[in-house]
């Protein structure tokens, strides 16, 4: 930290001329200079991140159509969020999506990454990585449209099922309340898997190879090595994967909006789509804000402890 002090002193002519400053004074002016450097970034953060959040919290206390005069309603909007089955139902759906967006991609990603690592040919392993990472490059909205066709009555998925004699299982996947949420989840799984694999692979590279050698000498098999060496060694990467994918699940919007718009019925409604609909279609900005704030707090409640769990054990 001392070099920062020197730099700051050099940049501030007054500080260099008055070398007899008390330490407290120097520290204060250093803080001031540092703050000055931080100001542009802080300003952006304040205007585009903090201020909208404050505004949303403020709006959530009002009944407001977004244009005309508003009425203060206190916490009434929050009461509605947690008593209206359509609204809290949407939150429950997003928790189910965690299974598809987060748990399955990470579990499968671990196995696939471990398998890719075994591939001896450099070309083949790169090819496999690129193939698996590709979905990540496609915008969620575009992926959702493509999957809508594939999951349709005469789409690719059903064609394949019929081709292998499983025609009885063919389904209008997005058009049935019992399968729609899972079908949306599959789209999310497809989008998140590549990200998890690439991140986990990079983590595996930094695990000491001698551990594997020692383990195999002791007679540990592939699965044993995965559970005893790879997974503990990837704690940090798994933490990042979990955080990113869980946030993607809880705050999902594009995939659902483009594939089902929350239907059939309300079977795939998620908070992201509900907030959009309340604010812009129903002109209930207050209620939409309350749902958004509730969602934000939920995301923090889920992701916060996760960070502690992952970082705490490492430190």
């Amino acid at each position: 930290m001392s070099n920062i002090q020197v730099d700051a002193g050099r940049l501030n002519p007054k500080a260099t001329s008055k070398r007899h400053r008390t330490q407290a004074g120097g520290r204060a002016s250093l803080a001031l200079v540092s703050l000055l450097f931080l100001t542009p970034a802080l300003l952006f953060y304040g205007v585009f991140e903090l201020w909208p959040i404050i505004q949303t919290i403020w709006y959530s206390l009002y009944e407001w159509n977004g244009i005309d005069a508003s009425t203060f309603v206190g916490l009434q909007n929050y009461v509605t969020v947690f008593t209206d089955p359509d609204l809290y139902g949407s939150i429950l759906h997003s928790f189910i999506l965690i299974l598809f967006f987060s748990v399955i991609p990470i579990a499968l990603g671990l196995v696939i990454a471990a398998l890719i690592k075994e591939i001896k040919s450099k070309t083949a392993s790169t090819f496999a990585q690129v193939c698996l990472f590709l979905p990540r490059v496609i915008p969620g909205a575009a992926a959702a449209v493509a999957w809508t066709w594939m999951l349709a009555d005469k789409g690719t998925v059903n064609q394949m099922l019929r081709a292998i004699g499983l025609g009885d299982l063919a389904h209008v996947w997005l058009g049935d309340q019992s399968t729609a949420l899972a079908a949306v989840g599959v789209i999310g799984f497809w989008l998140q898997l590549g990200f998890c694999i690439v991140l986990l692979l990079s983590g595996m590279g930094s695990i000491d190879q001698s551990l594997y050698e020692a383990a195999s000498l002791d007679g540990a098999g592939w699965w044993r090595q995965l559970f005893s060496i790879t997974i503990p060694g990837l704690r940090g990467q798994i933490g990042v994967c979990l955080t990113m994918t869980i946030v993607a699940a809880l705050a999902s919007f594009d995939v659902v909006y483009m594939s089902t718009q929350g239907g059939p019925g309300r079977s795939t409604m998620v908070p992201g789509v509900a907030v959009y609909r309340l604010a812009f279609t129903e002109q209930s900005v207050g209620l939409a804000s309350a749902l958004a704030v509730a969602l934000m707090i939920l995301v923090l409640l889920v992701v916060g402890p996760l960070q502690r769990l992952v970082n705490g054990k490492r430190g």
Binding site: D86, Q177, Q261, G262, G263, P264, G265, R266, R277, L278, T281, E282, Q283, S284
Partner: peptide, 16 residues
């Protein structure tokens, strides 16, 4: 009939 009728009632309820 209302701003939210189509999105929040007509579409989901007819599907159900």
């Amino acid at each position: 009939a209302t701003a939210g009728m189509q999105a929040s009632a007509i579409i989901p309820n007819f599907q159900q």
